[in-house]
Amino acid sequence: MFHWLEKHPFFFAVGVFLVIAFAGLVEILPNFAQASQPVVGTKPYTLLEMAGREVYIKNSCNACHSQLIRPFKAETDRYGHYSLSGEYAYDRPFLWGSKRIGPDLHRVGDYRTTDWHENHMKDPAGVVPGSIMPAYTWMFTNLADINTAYADQLTNAQFFNVPYNKPVPMKDGTTLTVPMAKSVAEANAMALEEAKTISADMKDKDVQDMVAAGKIPEIVALIAYLNSLK
């Protein structure tokens, strides 16, 4: 039987495929339904947060920062409560990262402010002496892509039943509804409203002028996203 296989390339290929495929089937599939259930307090991303998440991905922030707190004392001391599977239910893609050149960011919204991020993104070494993180000055002039973020939200709602416009349970027993716009025009207006609350806490004059003129720089969206990481 074995010898026969070695002379029949087609059946050989089928054999190889079966051997390599079955690990994936047994290991990965059964976990799927369970792992994607959100925990209480996890809510979908708002439009500006989603746009910020795309800025985060565009600049591969995940190449240097993890979003996964492991259950060790040293980690929970440094970054907060260890990460739970359900907290990632609305993360498409996941952004755990694989290398901490910089610190973990999974709960950065708990201990950093808009103001801190603004200064830090302009001049990391000025805020944290010795930092090897480069400055991300172009984020103060490039505009965030709100339309794509809106399309991202729509895709999440339509294909994956992410509960936009529906109440989700919060930790204090109340519910919270994350609204989603009905049209592109409304989406842009909503994002601008969100952007104004962020830029109000920022010092950069140019950023404030841009937001006042109806434009949203990438940095505003990114900070909205970072603040949402809790």
Partner: peptide
Amino acid sequence: DIFQLQGYAYFGLVTLM
């Protein structure tokens, strides 16, 4: 439940291999 099935499937397949 599915996790028990998964366990048996896993054990059976590994033994077979």
